[in-house]
């Protein structure tokens, strides 16, 4: 019971601190779930993100379900997800009732311009941490560079990259290349 409550509260905390898309959540997840709670490793986070890219639903919810399930089974997965969405329910319902043009206020726009700058740096830091656990040899660098270029310069769906990368991993390891 205590651990379920902790799951709910931790993911509520992640939800309330997430500004922007699922990727902006990563630095917060690393701090809360990997570093302070030790519920998952950086390596597992990259796994969850990869799976989240090609399964239905939003990545934030998928990741919360994964980690909750790992800690406390089915109930844990459900509780962690409810924790993640709880702040949104409260904040949006309160705001929608009060002011509908909240986002047009000039100070809100300035604040978010500042936050976006910070998010650039936080994502950079998150990528450096992920790199250390995810890219272990020259094949890793090749896959990283290829997927980065394809994502930036082609309109292909991430599902394609995920499938190709998984296939590449199987081929490289089966044919004896790469570090185990």
């Amino acid at each position: 019971m205590k651990e379920l409550l902790q799951l709910f509260l931790t993911f509520a905390k992640v939800g309330v601190m997430t500004f922007g898309g699922g990727m902006a959540m990563l630095p917060i997840l690393q701090r809360e779930v990997v570093e302070s709670k030790g519920w998952a490793t950086d390596e597992e986070l990259t796994d969850y993100f990869a799976i989240g890219q090609c399964t239905p639903g939003i990545i934030a919810v998928n990741t919360a379900t994964f980690i909750g399930q790992k800690r406390k089974g089915v109930l844990g997965g459900i509780v962690a997800t409810l924790g993640m969405v709880f702040p949104s329910l409260v904040i949006i319902t309160a705001l929608a009732g009060l002011i509908t043009n909240f986002s047009h206020l000039s100070w809100v726009q300035h604040a978010f311009a500042g936050i976006r700058v910070c998010v650039c740096v936080l994502i950079f830091n998150a990528v450096v941490k992920l790199w250390k656990s995810a890219v272990r040899d020259v094949w890793g660098i090749v896959i990283f560079a290829a997927v980065l270029a394809l994502t930036l310069f082609t309109p292909l769906s991430p599902i394609v990259f995920v499938l190709l990368a998984a296939l590449a991993g199987i081929l490289i390891q089966t044919l004896g290349g790469g570090r185990k």
């Binding site: 796994d47 994502i123 656990s133 995810a134 896959i143 990259f161």
Partner: peptide, 25 residues
């Protein structure tokens, strides 16, 4: 082996999202 290939790809997709925010900001 699949995850050995997926992890660098997943990291690259996060990096690409970061570059998107940089271009915007």
């Amino acid at each position: 082996a699949a995850f050995y290939g997926l992890r660098p790809a997943s990291t690259a997709m996060v990096a690409a999202a970061g570059i998107g925010v940089v271009l915007l900001t």
